[in-house]
């Protein structure tokens, strides 16, 4: 941490969840790094892969069950349609603060130079095909490959 006064040079973000709030967290952090001149990469694994699955990325939802900060009682959060309703409301609020939707955000990340990778293990487990993946994802790589990419001074890793 002492090299270059602890300056952050590169953010390696691992996105393991497919709920929209977690996907946004990863995207905002990756994009925010680029805006500061910091390199950033995202490794999509497990449910996080849905954020780069062409047919799924535009229908990600917020979790209404098991999320106390939603302030929706668990029993009600589990009712049919609640996830969709909460997601619609959240998307409206996001548009108000100039937050792009997931497809547009992916375009912004690609244009900003965020490098994106899909996890081989999760990719195989969910029986994805290469053509399922958003074009900005460069390659399907292993955990070892991702660690190799994370070598160097001032590199920070973040698990979401």
């Amino acid at each position: 941490m002492n090299e270059n006064k602890g300056a952050i040079k590169k953010m390696m973000i691992i996105l393991s969840k497919g709920t929209i709030e977690n996907v946004y967290a990863a995207f905002v952090l990756a994009n925010g790094a680029r805006m500061e001149g910091i390199e950033s990469e995202i490794f999509f694994t497990f449910f996080g892969l849905e954020a780069v699955h062409k047919k799924k990325l535009d229908s990600l939802r917020v979790a209404t069950v098991g999320n106390p900060a939603m302030h929706i009682p668990t029993m009600i959060g589990g009712l049919p349609g609640m996830e969709a309703l909460a997601t619609t409301m959240m998307k409206k609020e996001m548009e108000k603060i100039d937050m792009p939707d997931v497809p547009e955000f992916l375009e912004i990340l690609t244009a900003s130079g965020v490098r994106m990778w899909a996890c081989k293990l999760a990719f195989d487990m969910f029986h994805y095909k290469e053509e399922d993946l958003y074009e900005g994802v460069e390659k399907i790589i292993t955990v070892g490959d991702f660690y190799k990419r994370s070598e160097g001074e001032g590199v920070h890793m973040l698990f979401i």
């Binding site: 680029r34 805006m35 500061e36 001149g37 244009a111 900003s112 130079g113």
Partner: peptide, 10 residues
Amino acid sequence: YALFPNAPLK
């Protein structure tokens, strides 16, 4: 980003 490398908006 190409015109203003490293933190273009800033």
